[in-house]
Simulated scan of single mutants.
Amino acid sequence: MSSVERTQLTYVFDAYCGWCYGFGPALHAFADANADRIDLRVVSGGLFTSLRALPVAAYPHVPAANTRITELTGVTFGPGYEQVLAEGTLVMDSTDAATGLAALRSRPGAHALDAAAAMQRAWYIDGRSLSDVQVYRDIAAGLGLDADAVAAAYGSGAARAQAEADFLEVRRLGVDGYPTLLLHTAHGADRLGGPVASADALTRALDQRLDAAA
């Protein structure tokens, strides 16, 4: 299949979104299974920005939501994260996280979905702040990217501007919940699956949409 014919998808996520963390393994398996026919972009939605960028204790629903996420998706939350959650003081700032994703995906050879997953592991397993430039250095090294270049990009106005551009695009697409996987066709962007969809279910939904559009 040529690049012109590849199906275009956009994944709207937030690094501080537990349901996105739960959806990650299924989405990765779906992306791997369909790698020969899809192009998947990853953009940040901006869940905790501006006045919503608050200490995690300001969101008391989180522990119960995490229990539900584990029940429905099978993902687990690490001891580092559980400790930070109990302390309650770490500020979740989605603009910083979106800037980090922009910095990572800007590097040659970067795979945005892998970068997004690494960011969520840093938070949901290790409890590391996604406002800390060292997190992006470590992620870059783990992904085989230039850590110095990623750190410089994180501190640049360009990455911050790209994060804001992500937020604007998400609003333009009409997305107000995460995770959201969008299939782009000649008729517009349609949601594919939901936060607890399996990889096989996503592939079946993709096949059905493509067959209907043929």
Rank of each mutant, 00 (worst) to 15 (best):
M1E: 08
S3A: 10
V12C: 12
V12L: 07
V12G: 04
V12I: 14
F13A: 15
C17G: 02
C17T: 00
Y21G: 07
G22R: 05
F23N: 15
G24D: 12
P25D: 09
P25V: 11
P25S: 10
A29F: 02
F30N: 00
F30A: 07
A31E: 08
N34A: 05
N34F: 00
R37T: 14
R37I: 14
D39N: 15
S44P: 13
G46M: 12
G46E: 14
F48Q: 07
R52G: 10
A53F: 10
A58K: 06
N66I: 08
E71F: 02
T73F: 12
T76L: 06
F77S: 06
G80P: 01
G80L: 03
Y81H: 12
Q83A: 14
Q83Y: 11
A86G: 05
E87S: 13
D93I: 10
D93G: 09
D93W: 14
T95Q: 06
A97T: 12
T99M: 05
P108M: 01
H111D: 15
H111T: 07
D114H: 07
A117P: 00
A118S: 08
M119N: 12
A122P: 01
A122E: 03
I125A: 13
L130Y: 00
L130A: 10
D132P: 02
V133I: 11
Q134L: 10
Y136M: 07
Y136W: 01
R137L: 09
D138C: 00
I139L: 06
A141F: 06
A141Y: 11
A141H: 06
A141G: 09
G142W: 05
L145G: 01
D148Y: 11
A149D: 11
A152M: 08
A153F: 03
G155F: 14
G155T: 02
G155E: 09
G157A: 13
G157F: 10
R160F: 03
A163M: 06
A163C: 08
E164K: 03
E164M: 06
D166K: 01
D166M: 00
F167E: 05
F167L: 14
E169P: 04
V170Y: 14
V170H: 02
R172A: 09
L173C: 12
G177P: 00
P179A: 06
T180Y: 00
L183G: 06
T185P: 01
G188D: 10
D190P: 04
G193H: 10
G193Y: 05
P195A: 12
P195F: 12
P195L: 04
V196M: 15
S198D: 08
D200C: 02
T203I: 05
Q208L: 12
L210Q: 13
D211Q: 10
D211W: 08
A214H: 04
